[in-house]
Design a protein around this nucleic acid. Structure first.
Lengths: 345, 345
DNA sequence: CTACTAAATGAAACCGCTTGCAGAGCCTAT
DNA sequence: ATAGGCTCTGCAAGCGGTTTCATTTAGTAG
């Protein structure tokens, strides 16, 4: 029952102990464990054995202090209960650990202030690089990165300005494709359930793309037909309900992401509106569930796992001194499934 | 285009610079920024101003080395694309950052070896404490924790042995409730889609609970009526399909978690089997989606956010030297919704 | 066997911050 | 004035590694 750990901690073996146990100097022990070929093979082995013997675990902080490298990458993400972010962070983490790096993850509730604070904390922790989501950040955040001259990758969004390193998709373009697909099916009356556009360039771009595609065929989108909602199923249900009450008469709903679309779908089902006969619904992201629903959800495939992997790979490459294309665009194809169909007469 | 960051890095202001700029010694500067009342208020202010001026960011590794505290907590989780883990890590992260701690997150694909490696990496990074999921771990992992005398919390599971600090629910008991509920509805022929029980005590306990409850009313569960599957919607669909082919005739399916149950539900829908009239389905976890489906999914509410919050709070308390109940059990009530109903005749 | 070069090792100087201890001011009491 | 206490500062010794540079050892050729 008694807890003694605070003092016991000090007894951990350090490199000096390993050195003593194997009869070499601190320097040699250090080099031996680093697999340096400056040390003779059998000495190396002797040191390794001693280390195992003692259960030696290197002290990361000390090493970080000496090398000015923490072998740690920070990531600042929105809440991971959106599976796209969960997948990306998982992929990122896997990719990093393959190279001996560890992921330091911070999450924030789509709040720029919290995001800034989290980023600052990560920098203090000495991350060697940073992964951010999207381009919308507190200007102070960019200044911080600048001052720390820390390499970072923007994910999901693309910086056409060519300034930031980034790997992502064109949300605007993909959204245009969605709208065109619905237009081609004969729809003329649209509603949009957008994600919250404040501090979220992806949500803005998706909305803009849809607007633009409709406008190019002379179709307007009155504000009563547009609702912003948090990225969640329940919010999608509520949003569709409001739209149906405030401005009925539309035959297609373009949603800012899949959870919103699934919400819209569930709301339709609850109200006896058949999909796609009476109402077409399109999502964005292609979460796993989208393919498994009946009817399957028409959506845009945003390869979140790949974004995570590539962001990690790019950052590692840069840390290794390699050059990397500043902008990496990943295609986000429209996946047509069963929730979109010809407009009713 | 040219990248110069590797060298630029060295120019970051250090505490010595702050000290010089504010005309005090290193020691005083350190104490001033630590808000120590050993330093006069106006000196403190002078130092703070200089720090802001220079854009000083403390060097975490150096501090960790000096204090033997990293203000970092490690967590080793299964993939976060299961929303229950996403929620828990998010809650954990929030709770920790409230106290100035940062979360160092590692994920593994339900692989004990990878889990061990990840844990070792976290310990090297100097985490002050660790959060683990469940009790099933490589024995070496426990040995590692022991040697490092690192405080840790087991989440989700309960250690009735009273050895590990833990916060979780009784999976066995909750599963008994599920089975009893179905028995009370008149079901006598059952199938179970369990999560993969290898290296997963929660999956095992859930399965055992169901078995036990059925057995106590004299109902057996032939192995043809039990399938193990990865915790995912698609796997649930496939599993139900196999069960229907191999051993039809059951009227209720007990699923190891909600994604599996949702998969089973979708498979029923695809095959024209009505739920709950022809088939009752129960899940486990109560993910957000469970409530929003029609019919709503009958399931067990496992408060994952709360688990995350409490684990963080407990760990922080222990790090602050406070005593904490070794085991904290959270209730996991059965939530009856629309996917379970009376057995067909 | 000696001289010279290359390979392996060790001594010691950091890395940036915290903190125990000693010393410098400053104020009050004698 | 002087002594005795305070309060506030500064010096310097770590924390546990890495790495430069000098030194020792081993290897090779003359």
């Amino acid at each position: 029952m008694l807890e003694l750990w605070p003092m016991a901690r000090s007894s951990n073996p350090k490199l000096a102990d390993v050195a003593r146990a194997s009869g070499v100097s601190l320097a040699t022990a250090s080099r031996a464990l680093a697999e340096s070929d400056l040390v003779r093979a059998n000495t190396r082995e002797r040191v390794r054995d001693a280390a195992n013997m003692l259960g030696y675990v290197p002290h990361g902080a000390a090493r970080a202090l000496a090398t000015r490298r923490s072998r740690t990458i920070g990531a600042v993400f929105p809440p991971l209960d959106n599976p796209i972010f969960a997948k990306a962070t998982h992929a990122l983490s896997q990719e990093l650990s393959r190279a001996g790096y560890t992921l330091l993850l911070a999450t924030h509730d789509y709040d720029p202030g919290a995001e800034l604070a989290a980023t600052r904390a990560l920098i203090e922790r000495g991350v060697d690089g940073l992964v951010l989501v999207g381009m919308d950040h507190d200007p102070e955040l960019y200044r911080l990165l600048e001052r720390a001259s820390l390499p970072y990758e923007i994910t999901w969004s693309l910086d056409h300005g060519g300034y930031h390193h980034c790997v992502g998709v064109s949300h605007r373009l993909a959204s245009v494709h969605v709208a065109q697909h619905l237009l081609d099916l004969g729809h003329r009356e649209f509603a949009v359930i957008a994600g919250e556009t404040a501090h979220n360039d992806r949500a803005r771009d998706r909305l803009a793309g849809a607007r633009e595609a409709l406008a190019s065929r002379g179709i307007g989108l009155p504000s009563s037909r547009v609702r912003e909602a948090p990225f969640a199923v329940a919010a999608g249900m509520a949003a569709l309900a409001r739209l149906l009450e405030d401005a009925p008469g539309f035959t297609a709903v373009i949603c800012g992401n899949d959870p919103l679309a699934i919400g819209a779908l569930l709301e339709c089902r609850a109200r006896g509106i058949t999909v796609p006969d009476q109402m077409s619904i399109a999502g964005f992201d292609d979460v796993d569930l989208a393919a498994e629903l009946t009817p399957g959800l028409t959506t845009v495939r945003v390869p979140s796992t790949e974004i995570g992997t590539r962001a990690g790979r790019r950052l590692l490459a840069r840390l290794a001194g390699k050059r990397v294309r500043r902008m990496e665009e990943i295609m986000a194809p429209l996946i047509v499934r069963g929730t979109t169909g010809p407009a009713p007469d």
